[in-house]
Computed example of a mutant assay.
Amino acid sequence: MLKSKQYILIASVGLLMVILYNLDIKGLVKPKDDRGMQTTATAAPEKISAVSYKSVSDVAKQSINASLASDIEKLEDKAKGASGAGLAAIQKQIAQKWDDLNQPAPAAFAYEAVAKLEPNYNNWIITGDRFTDGYQNFRDTTATAGLLNKAITAYNKALEINPNSLDAKTGLGVAYVTGTQNPMQGIQLLLGVVKEDPKNVKANMNLGMFSMKSGQFQKAVDRFKTVIDVKPTPEAWFYLGTSYENLGMKPEAILAYQKSKELAADPSLSEFVDRKIKELNN
Rank of each mutant, 00 (worst) to 15 (best):
A143G: 03
Q91I: 07
S270L: 06
A151T: 03
G146V: 05
A50W: 03
L16V: 10
G171H: 11
V177G: 07
F238W: 13
S67N: 08
L23D: 03
S67A: 10
E73A: 15
Q136K: 08
T132V: 12
F131N: 02
E46C: 00
K97E: 01
Q93F: 08
Y53F: 15
P234N: 11
M1W: 11
A175W: 00
K5C: 08
I152C: 13
K219H: 01
S243F: 07
F109I: 05
S165L: 12
I161S: 10
G27W: 13
P106G: 03
D197W: 05
F217W: 10
A256F: 13
N22I: 03
A143D: 08
L207A: 04
D197R: 09
P183D: 09
K219I: 05
L87V: 07
S243I: 06
Q93C: 06
S4Q: 14
N281R: 12
Q62L: 02
A145R: 13
K231V: 00
K225R: 15
I126P: 01
D58W: 11
I161W: 09
K276M: 14
L20R: 09
P251T: 04
R275S: 15
E118H: 03
G128E: 04
S270V: 09
F272T: 11
T42L: 02
K259R: 15
N206S: 14
K231G: 00
K202N: 14
D77H: 13
D100C: 00
S57T: 12
S49L: 06
G186V: 06
I277P: 09
M184V: 00
L9V: 12
D229L: 13
S57G: 04
P267Y: 10
N137S: 15
M212G: 06
Y111T: 05
I126E: 15
A108I: 02
I277D: 08
A79S: 15
T132S: 15
K231C: 03
D34F: 13
N204W: 03
S55A: 14
A115P: 07
Y21W: 14
V230G: 02
A115C: 06
V273S: 11
E118Y: 01
K26F: 13
L75A: 07
K231Q: 12
Y135R: 04
R139V: 11
I19P: 00
P163D: 11
T226I: 10
P232I: 10
A66I: 05
